[in-house]
Design a protein around this nucleic acid. Structure first.
Lengths: 343, 343
DNA sequence: AACTCCTACGTCAACGTTGACGTAACCGCC
DNA sequence: GGCGGTTACGTCAACGTTGACGTAGGAGTT
């Protein structure tokens, strides 16, 4: 076994000495800059190879005028949510193609932690930050943004100026989902939502209201349940709905864990074939359930790609006005949303 | 909107000038080192705060003797696989508590890409690397390891020396799963596996063989289907199994996508209530299906935590002999694995 | 009173790299 | 054959920080 741990990493100086040139010439060859003859360049490359030389990007970015670290930070709430995972993947994918690596950090919906992570990132001089989770106030984000760090918010618009964001068609797609249910004849459509503090929840609720209005239905307040953070709360709330004298015949669940919780209850009460369900956010195996769950599917890779493109452009010096990019979601019909009301 | 993008970041020199001390004193205060009076320290901290000073970790690690970047690299295959996502999350969590951030990169099962990512990471002078995906040869890994980079493999033992790894009880748990099925009276138990080049596939297959042997059952070669990379291939292969004259009464699926594919077919042929299924690897909503899927659940957070602890220890200079940590998996009974053979 | 020791600072150089600039050799051209 | 231009190098300092070391002043010891 090779105990190489204590061996010093070779530097440009070592390569230069072996190739009998100056470090500057090594720099030119390594970076592919002009000003080095073919013969010398070969010698340098050979020396680099024999020594196993790897340029030190941190030293390089320290000295370089652009000061780039070719690294961006990505903050998310919880990777165990497939939405976050897919988003990170999409951002990482796009960034990698630009030679940029991703420093990942999960804030677990904790403002203190988020602030600390932002400091950690800025301490490492990332070129920009993509933030895909912020409940409540955005002070820490604004503070970081004001320092000049390029920033893109995902799934939430900024409460402060000068910052790009990428969201999906929360309101329009929610409205469409409700209209889809109404078109089947449903008149009692419940709304089950995540925490009201979340911008997406509010948007989806607004879309729900718009849908009801557009279909000529009246809102029944008791069919609206919000602040359902997690599948368990959603399950309980769904139970309460079906204890009503006049229970809903259709349910619009405005977040994927809420959908799962609702389905769990419907299944337990054997209502899953009689009550229509449309969920916002797709989730794995939604097609495997019986019936398959009709969902509003966000274009997660599209959102991630767009976010990455925006941050990369800003890092490249794009100073055009801030953008709110909206990536369209689509209704995926799998059965649960196509159940007509029992007459 | 604050156009701060072009304002130079404040440095120690700026803080020193404002606090009327030397940069070295600022360094002492910022790093909490002794040798600075209380009054001076307060002045320095105040100056740092007014300027919005953030230490530059890249410059610091360049100069420091330990040369630490407080960053580790994590390579995974595909974040859209919940196994990878949960693992990354666990590693990130543990690392964060040690003040270490994670540079994430997906290799997408491509050796060229993996090699490039390793170079990118080493170019950024990460302190260590956790690798959770390598099919086939490990040349690039060994090369990186030989440079002295601390490394931990997850889910696969190294083919070279001097490197830690963390795996689960692939063989033992597979054997137990088969014995569980055999105890119900199953005598025709099929094996559906991922690519044979994967070490985990081989281990699980070996466990399957051990289980058959221990239960006194004879292997029927036509009930073994491997190289099923992805749910679609698994679905097709499962179909072929049930076209046999004497189809299996139970199926052991050795990977989560394989399980999903198999379930898809069983559902399509309405066999899902008659054929027993045990899958290796849990997956979201496995409990929501009908029947719930009995699985061998790996302790993914445990694996991730262990991997992080190992790499952090190595970075801290632990030179004890390489470790192969084995984190036990557990059988989770949900129904599909408890179906008795139809007589 | 002379000494050692300690504390609280400061000075300087170096980490690995690159921007700015210098220079020697060679080219073409009137 | 002298001039301007280009090419292929080299030299030097600086990026932001910290390790090694220096020093002034005060406290404690003999």
């Amino acid at each position: 076994m090779d105990r190489a741990a204590d061996r010093r990493e070779p530097t440009m100086r070592d390569v230069a000495a072996l190739a009998k040139v100056s470090t500057k010439t090594v720099s030119r060859v390594i970076n592919g800059l002009p000003g080095a003859g073919a013969e010398v360049a070969d010698r340098v490359r050979a020396a680099a190879r024999t020594l196993g030389y790897r340029p030190n990007l941190t030293a390089s970015s320290l000295r370089r005028s652009d000061r780039r670290s070719a690294t961006i930070g990505v903050l998310f709430e919880d990777l165990s949510n497939p939405f976050d995972a897919a988003l990170l993947r999409a951002v990482e994918d796009r960034a990698r193609h630009a030679g940029v690596l991703v420093l990942a950090g999960s804030s677990e919906d904790d403002h203190t932690l988020q602030r600390e992570l932002l400091v950690s990132l800025s301490t490492r001089r990332v070129d920009g930050v993509v933030v895909m989770a912020v409940g409540g106030h955005q002070d820490a984000l604004q503070q970081e943004r004001d320092r000049g760090t390029p920033m893109v918010l995902v799934d939430r618009p900024p409460t402060f100026g000068g910052t790009d964001c990428v969201t999906t068609t929360n309101r329009d797609s929610s409205r469409d989902a409700v209209l889809h249910l109404a078109a089947l004849g449903h008149r009692d459509i419940a709304f089950l939502g995540d925490r009201r503090t979340l911008w997406t929840s509010q948007e989806r609720y607004t879309g729900y209201l718009e849908g009801l209005a557009q279909a000529g239905l009246t809102l029944r307040d008791e069919l609206v349940r919000t602040d359902l953070h997690g599948a368990d709360l959603a399950e309980t709330a769904t139970g309460a709905l079906f204890d009503l004298d006049r229970p809903p015949t259709a349910v619009f669940t405005a977040q994927n864990l809420v959908t799962v919780g609702a389905m769990r209850l419907l299944r337990a009460r054997d209502l899953h074939r009689r009550v229509a369900v449309i969920g916002f956010d797709d989730f794995p195996l939604a097609d495997m359930l019986d019936p398959g769950i009709t969902v509003v599917r966000q274009d997660v890779p599209g959102i991630g790609r767009r976010a990455a493109e925006l941050i990369l452009a800003r890092i490249d010096g794009d100073t055009s006005p801030p953008v709110h990019a909206v990536v369209p979601a689509a209704l995926v019909r799998r059965g649960s949303g196509e159940i007509a009301p029992v007459s």
